[in-house]
């Protein structure tokens, strides 16, 4: 056992690696998509809600953003079971990352919406737009464009955060890598490989973001 060449070990462990990477991508993707949708909703409440709603949304975003994502993950996995909500590791991991992502998206969207010049709202009102129409056709398109670069950042943070769910036993890239290393002791090589895979995933998100930015840029 162990101490074979890196390439032969790579061939032996390719399925485990592939599965780990797949779970990493899956967890991240779901968390980013669901977290973004949830975050947009919370961000809208944060900006336009009435006082109690706004207070709740503010409490949610501030608390979540103030907690390290690792603590969030552990809370979902261990603490919720105390009050009778039993989540498996994958569920706990995905839920906590969704929440993490949503709080950041909410806060950035609030900033984006409030940054749209007040003249935009006035012009829309003067034309007879309802609030809903103003929001949908005028404010949101401008706010989303504005938050795009920050959103890319949050997506990347969420992907990197997904490595933490290995702690509760989700078989993602880090846990798979650790198990492979336990078998062949090629610590350096396989951690470097995991790092490379994370980099590729993050880099792809960034390129996608840049592409999107260019495509929707205001001329």
């Amino acid at each position: 056992m162990g101490n074979g060449g890196f390439l032969s070990e790579l061939v032996i462990s390719r399925n485990d690696l592939f599965y780990g990477f797949y779970i990493t991508v899956l967890v991240s993707l779901i968390s980013i998509v669901v977290g973004t949708i949830l975050g947009v909703l919370v961000g809208v409440v944060l900006t336009y809600g009435n006082l109690p709603a706004r207070f709740l949304a503010r409490f949610y975003t501030d608390v979540i953003r103030g907690i390290p994502s690792l603590v969030l993950i552990l809370t979902f996995f261990y603490v919720l079971s105390v009050i009778g909500i039993n989540l498996n590791a994958l569920q706990a991991g995905i839920y906590s990352l969704c929440i993490f992502c949503s709080a950041h998206v909410a806060e950035m969207l609030r900033g984006g919406l409030q940054n749209v010049h007040v003249g935009q709202t006035e012009a829309a009102k003067a034309l007879g737009f309802s609030f809903r129409q103003t929001f949908t056709f005028i404010l949101m398109p401008q706010a989303l464009r504005q938050v795009l670069p920050t959103w890319i950042n949050t997506a990347i943070e969420t992907l990197k955060g997904s490595s933490l769910v290995s702690i509760i036993g989700v078989q993602e890239l880090i846990l798979s890598t650790q198990q492979i290393i336990a078998r062949n002791f090629l610590t350096m090589q396989f951690y470097a490989l995991a790092g490379l895979l994370y980099f590729i995933a993050c880099f792809s998100i960034e390129r996608f973001g840049k592409y999107l930015e260019k495509k929707v840029a205001i001329k």
């Binding site: 010049h117 006035e122 012009a123 003067a126 034309l127 007879g128």
Partner: peptide
């Protein structure tokens, strides 16, 4: 509001 048309100092085009 739709009864009147308003033009602003700062244009406020979208």
């Amino acid at each position: 509001r739709a009864l009147t048309g308003m033009v602003f100092q700062s244009f406020n085009l979208f």
